[in-house]
Each structure stands twice: as C-alpha cells, then as structure tokens.
Design a protein around this nucleic acid. Structure first.
Lengths: 328, 328
DNA sequence: AGCTAATGTGGAATCGATACCACAAAAATA
DNA sequence: TATTTTTGTGGTATCGATTCCACATTAGCT
C-alpha cells in the first residue's frame, strides 16, 4: 500500500509538507502544492484511516446497536441515522444484538475498542446493569426509545400515543377494549403503552376484564396467538382490541379473519407503528405514526452535537400522529 | 486511555511480554501470566484496535454496501451476513447508497480507506465502471444479486424463478398475462426476470400485448400506477399479472381493489419476494421465496473463505421456492 | 561436567499518519 | 539598513500496538 512517505519522496518534499497539504494545516507553497497534487492524482494515494485515528483519536465512525435488524422500525431508524451522518462524512458500524440483552452490554465495549466516536443505542430495556454501563461509558452516547437518567435520549411519547388511540376507540363507541402488549421490562413498548391504555380506560370508567389483556412477543404469529387467547378465554368478548405494534395487530386480524369475524364490524383493531404495509392489509389499519426516520435523524444530530461540543438537549420527545383508516 | 505500556509497568514486565500474553504468541511464564492477568482484570484494559490494525493490517471489519436499507430484502440480507460474521468476531461497517449508482463506486473506495478486510456489495446494476472498479479493488469482495465476470458472487436464479411463476399462471389457465418489471440496467430484477417471463410466454405460444408490460420503480405506489396503466391502456385486458417484487404486486392489488376488481377471480396476481406481509395481505400473495438471509449468510461465508484463503466457489446460485397462496 | 535445546524476557524497530518545533528565506515594517 | 513578521520546509517525537532478535536462564541429554 502507498504511504505518505512514498508520496513525499515522489513529490520531493517532506512527509510533513504532504500532511499539511492533506489537512490544509499550515503553509504549503504553490509549487509544492502542485507537485503533491499531481503525485496523489497519479498514484491514487489514499491516507490510512487507522494511522490517522491512532494519532488524532477520531474515527468518523458511529457505532449503532440494534435489537434486531429486520424490522421496519429498525431499518427506518438506521436510514435516518445514516442520512444524517453521511452528510458529515461519518459512517455506521453496525452491531445487532438479536434481542439478546447480554449482547447489548457486550457491544458497548466492543464498539469502544473500535474507538468509535460515539454510540447510538436503540434500547429495548432499562436494566440496572445496562444503565450503569451506559453511564460509565465515557463516550458520546444517545439512546433511542428508552428513558435513562443522565443519558441523552430520543424517545417516543408512548404513554400519550397509547392513551390517545385507546380514547379514539372509546369515542367510536367501544367499551370493551382488549389489549395485546409485550413484556414490561421493555419500558417503552411494554410498560408505558400498557399504562396509557389503562389510563384511558380508567378515565372513562371502563372495566378491563383480565383475560382481555395478553402479553406477546414481537412477531406476527405471536399477535395471532394472543388474539386467540383473548377470544377463547374471555367470557365477555371485547368489541375492540389495541395491539402495541402493527405486527401484533396484523397477527390478531389474521386470527379474527380465520374465525370468520369481520374487522371492524365485529371487532375493531388499532395499533402503533404505521408500518408501510399497515396501509395495505385488509381492512387498512388504524395506527399511530411514530416517525422512526426522524428518531434516527435526531439521534444522529444529537451525537454529532455532543461530539462537536455544541449545544444539545438531554431529552427529545418525538411527536406522533394518529392515522385513521378502516380497521376501527 | 490505558495502554499496553502502562499495563506492562504495573505488572512489572515489558510491553513485549504483555503482547505475547494477549496474543498467546511465544513464551510467557506462569508467574508473569498471573500478574498480567490480574492487572488487566483490575484495570479493565482493552487493547486499541487501531494500533493493532496499523501493525497487523487486519481489522475484523467487513464493509457492506446496500442500495437501500429500509426494505425487507436488504435487512434480511444484512441479518444473514451479520449472523455469520458475528460467529467469527467480525463486524459490519455499513454503507447505504440510497440507490445512487455513483455512491456505489465511491463507497468501495471509502471502505477500502477504512481498511476493511473485505466488502460485500449488494448490487443493483452491472455498469461498466462499477464492474471495472470491483475487479480492480484488490481486496476480498463478494457481490450479492448480480453476475460479474471474475468476481465471487451469490446470485438468485431470476430467470428460472420468473419463468416458473409465469408457467404456474399458465397452468392455472391464464393466457393473457401482464408484467410489471423494473429498469433493465438492474440485470437481475429488471432483465432476467423479464426474460423469464417472455420465455415462458413464448414456449406456450402466448401473445404479449405491449401495453401489458410496464416498467416501475421499487415502491408500492409505483406498482399501483403500473397496474393503472395496464388497465387503462389495454384494449384487451389481461387475466393475470406478474410483478417482479412483492411491493409492486401489493401496489397493483391495491389499485385493482380500488377499481372493484376481485383478486384472483377477475385478475390473478403473483410476484417474487416472499416478504413477511405477503402472507397477510388479502388475498394472500402467491410469490417466490428467495431466501435472502441465506444469500447474506453465503456471502459472509464466501468472504471469510477468501480472507482465510480456504476454498470457495466463484458463483453460488441460490435456490428458490414457489409459495402458492390465494392471489392466483 | 559439558553442550545443545527449550523457555522466558526485554529492547528496539516498525506500521502510517500528525504535530510541534527549529530554522531559513522572503517580505514587511521601522 | 536593521529588525520584525510572514511564509515555507523538514526533522523528529508520538500515537499503541506487534514482532524480530539478542540474550539470559533453566532443563535435558550424552
């Protein structure tokens, strides 16, 4: 590989001069400039980023830790991050945990070793150990999707979004509303969305039958099964169901159809996510748009601000938008 | 940051010894080993990857260039790659071209500068300049999705998949079959899939009305518009349509529904992709499963084989599977 | 005992860049 | 003309690791 030394020799200057030329730091005469430029163009020389980072301690790489890469939410977030970072010449080093909480912690170290300039963590939980680790990282870091004390974060307004969509179901005349959620260790999706649902139900003095509330994991099939449990175990059948993600809602609808029930006439379905297909399932899904790309974009902006030590907010609360379609 | 020098001092040995300990190269006495181990555990020292790569010329990072990150295909491929690479302690440096062909070439250089150990390119075209660049890279590289002479590649069997699904439509009694494709500079999705379609039509001596063949781009809305063009411009209406991707098919179905046409009774729809939602649209989509995760996995295996100089094939042709559902 | 081989250790060069500093020449100012 | 400033250049230390080599000590074998 070509090095700065060879370029220097070929252009008849010192390594220092070439370096100054490359970084536009300090004086370089017009003559020298031309010679160096010519040699570099001819040889196609590109300086080694590693040597550079070794000295400067900067890599222009941001580590991104994802719980899973093949969901629409994740890829939209990454797209948002990437767009913003690319503008500044930063790149993404990807770490996929596959929903393994242990790896979330592990990868923080791994990325640090790679000397990334910062880390964006799309978090699924707020376990003690993770929070502690994050706080001790001593490296610019931004969390997406969960609140952590003292850590810069970009969060969705899960409580209010959830409450609003439940309210909407009530407005539409539903009194018996079921809920498909996920484990509460996921504070945002699990805990706050459930709280929003209960809060709305309480305010309207509506009863929540315990069999109406089911816990699922994140895939479509799990939504199917949860809906099945609701229908088979409940003595009083609900007239509406709110699922915390689109995928769960799609699974639920799939079971309802199988049972010959009509959505929304027999049972209304609503969810959160606004995935692309939510428009194309039949009936189209009433859901909440969370602006995932915006989340990625904001997180990227924050991390760049932290790195460049310009001002940044500690907490960014994203807004959301209710999308009314035909499933309610 | 902690360096090897400090560890050496604290453990009362030389840097060489610490290095030998870390890499299990050469002799280290039991005593020294214990002392070093203790110091490292206590301090939480982690060696700098940059310094390491500077000397060893290895980074354990693979660059992945994607045309777009927020499609299911892409994220599945990346998931496949990631799974395989993670086993060997490799990580992914992501580069997203946003379908910009210029960037595809640019990123090859950019990743090289970062001294990645290899590159996996999910290609959308086989333009002269790109091919030339790839061949000149002088770095382990694997292409997914397109054929390139002299370059290791993992490809789908577009021609036969396309032919088979067209044949299936014919078997089902359709004689007037429309086609929604994409630009032919995308050899795989654009050119070969179209060829497969024509080949099947020819073999059955079926006529192809020119208005039946429409070109779209990759999103759902574009499928909608293409379907609209087919219906509005054709004097003889087709009884089936084959779209080269699920998203296009979903767009097409959405238009058909809007027009009050019943799928599959009035018009049958088939496509390629087997995206998760293809099961959940109504009617569920007859499509071809391309095993995208497998593509990623194979590409990762190939690149690791090239790096470690073990044996590898120049071309891997993936198999596919027809999934028969209700849209035909 | 005498000699080769195995075991252990540290010094120093090296990877490819940056950055500080000394110094020379030319230009600007007194 | 003398002196300060500006412009331009190269030498050298440095970043944090690895690796080769020299050298010492211990063990193993006639």
């Amino acid at each position: 590989m070509l090095t700065i030394k060879e370029i220097a020799e070929m252009a008849n200057v010192s390594r220092s001069t070439v370096s100054r030329f490359l970084n536009d730091s300090g004086y370089v005469s017009e003559e020298a400039r031309k010679r160096i430029d010519k040699v570099i163009k001819e040889t196609g020389y590109i300086p080694s980023e590693h040597a550079k980072s070794l000295r400067t301690k900067k890599t222009k790489v941001i580590g991104v830790i994802l719980p899973t890469i093949h969901t629409e939410t994740s890829s939209k977030i990454v797209a948002g991050i990437d767009n913003e970072l690319a503008k500044q010449g930063y790149q993404i080093l990807l770490a996929n945990t596959n929903l393994d909480k242990e790896k979330e912690i592990e990868y923080l170290d791994l990325l640090k070793v790679r000397q990334v300039d910062g880390i964006i963590l799309v978090a699924t939980n707020t376990e003690e150990r993770l929070v502690k680790k994050v706080q001790e990282m001593n490296l610019p870091i931004v969390i997406i999707g969960q609140h952590m004390p003292g850590v810069t974060s970009v969060v969705y307004d899960d409580f209010h979004a959830s409450k609003e969509i439940t309210n909407y179901l009530v407005e539409k005349g539903h009194k018996k509303i079921a809920f498909i959620g996920v484990d509460e260790t996921d504070r945002s999706v699990g805990y706050f969305r459930k709280k929003g649902y209960y809060s709305a139900m309480n305010e309207h003095r509506l009863e929540v039958n315990s069999t109406w509330v089911q816990t699922a994991i994140f895939d479509i099939d799990s939504g199917y099964k949860a809906m099945k449990r609701i229908l088979t175990k409940s003595s009083i059948l609900p007239t509406a169901v709110f699922a915390v993600t689109d995928r769960l809602a799609i699974g639920a609808m799939s079971y309802l159809k199988e049972q010959g029930l009509i959505v929304p006439d027999d049972i209304a379905v609503a969810s959160i996510g606004a995935s692309e297909i939510s428009r194309y399932v039949d009936p189209s899904l009433t859901t909440v748009d969370y602006h995932n790309e915006m989340a990625g974009k904001q997180a990227a902006k924050q991390i760049l601000a932290i790195i460049s030590k310009t001002e940044y907010q500690e907490k960014i609360l994203l807004n959301y938008r209710l999308i009314i379609r035909n499933s309610v």
